[in-house]
Computed example of a mutant assay.
Amino acid sequence: MRTTDFMNMNDIKEIKDIELMVNRFYSAVREDTMLGPIFNSIIQDKWDTHLDKMVRFWQTILLQEYTYKGSPFAPHRKLPIEANHFEQWLGHFNNCIDQHFKGPKADEAKLRAEKMAQMFQYKLANNSI
């Protein structure tokens, strides 16, 4: 990325930004040799439904537009995932944000994703619900 590209990037401000973030991030996850098989085996042909849910989740978190209801941890509780999976997931997430956005909401998205990964790992290690 050129410096001028970075300077022209906008922050996450509206639903179209959330949609871009979610779609680009999960595109990378689906193609990842470690994460892709896990996600693809669980989600199968329901990617549209999953992506819509993830858009609503991040819309709620970052834009305070309360469209998501549910527990983000519960679906992940029985997945075969460990610390290295979370590191890979965060790497893709942060790369996606850095490639497309710059600003306080972009920074918040990365911080929230890191905190979520830490919380999920803690709950998985302690068999929490």
Rank of each mutant, 00 (worst) to 15 (best):
Ala28Thr: 01
Asp45Ile: 03
Thr49Asn: 15
Gly103Ala: 09
Met116Lys: 06
Met7Phe: 15
Ala74Met: 12
Val29Phe: 06
Glu19Trp: 01
Ile15Tyr: 05
His76Phe: 02
Asp45Gln: 14
Gly103Leu: 09
Glu65Gly: 05
Thr33Asp: 13
Arg56Ser: 13
Glu82Ala: 15
His92Arg: 04
Gln88Ser: 12
Ile61Gln: 12
Asn94Val: 10
Gly70Lys: 09
Glu108Asp: 14
Pro75Trp: 08
Lys110Pro: 05
Lys46Tyr: 10
Asp5Gln: 13
His85Tyr: 05
Gln118Lys: 02
Met119Val: 04
Ile18Pro: 00
His100Ser: 01
Ile18Gln: 03
Lys69Ala: 00
Thr4Asp: 12
His100Leu: 02
Lys123Arg: 08
Glu87Pro: 06
Ile12Asp: 03
Lys105Gln: 13
Pro104Lys: 15
Arg24His: 08
Ala106Leu: 11
Ala28Cys: 06
Leu79Ala: 11
Leu124Arg: 01
Asn94Ala: 08
Leu79Cys: 07
Leu90Phe: 07
Glu65Pro: 02
Arg24Lys: 14
Ile38Gly: 06
Thr49His: 15
Glu82Pro: 06
Asn95Gly: 11
Lys16His: 09
Asn127Val: 02
Met1Arg: 07
Arg30Pro: 02
Gly70Leu: 00
Lys115Tyr: 01
Leu51Pro: 04
Asp52Val: 02
Asp52Lys: 07
Lys78Val: 05
Met54Asn: 07
Leu51Val: 08
Lys102Asn: 10
Asp5Ser: 11
Arg30Ser: 07
Met119Phe: 00
Leu90Gln: 06
Lys69Trp: 12
Gly103Ile: 11
Pro75Phe: 07
Tyr66Arg: 10
Leu63Glu: 02
Leu124Gln: 03
Thr67Asn: 06
Arg2Gln: 04
Ala113Thr: 07
Gln64Ser: 11
His100Val: 00
Asn94Pro: 02
Ala113Leu: 02
Glu14Asp: 13
Ser41Ala: 14
Met9Thr: 14
Asn8Gln: 12
Gln118Asp: 15
Ile81Lys: 05
Lys105Cys: 12
Phe6Asn: 12
Phe73Trp: 04
Arg56Ile: 01
Gly103Asp: 05
Asn95Ser: 13
Asn126Phe: 10
Phe86Lys: 03
His92Thr: 04
Lys46Cys: 07
Gln44Lys: 15
Val55Tyr: 04
Pro75Leu: 04
Trp89Ile: 02
Ala83Lys: 14
Val55Ile: 09
Asp45Met: 11
His50Lys: 04
Asn8Ala: 15
Asp45Tyr: 10
Ile15His: 08
Glu87Tyr: 15
Asp48Gly: 14
His76Trp: 04
Glu31Leu: 11
Ser41Gln: 12
Leu79Ser: 03
Lys16Ile: 00
Gln64Gly: 08
Asp32Phe: 03
Glu108Tyr: 15
Ile12Thr: 03
Leu63Arg: 01
Lys46Leu: 11
Ser41Leu: 05
Val55Arg: 04
Ile61Thr: 10
Thr60Ala: 08
Asn8Thr: 12
Met21Thr: 04
His76Asp: 06
Pro80Asn: 11
Asn23Gln: 05
Lys110Tyr: 09
Lys69Asp: 00
Met1Thr: 08
Arg2Trp: 03
Cys96Met: 10
Ala83Thr: 12
Ser128Gln: 11
Ala117Met: 05
Lys46Asn: 13
Arg30Glu: 10
Trp47Pro: 03
His85Met: 09
Glu114Thr: 13
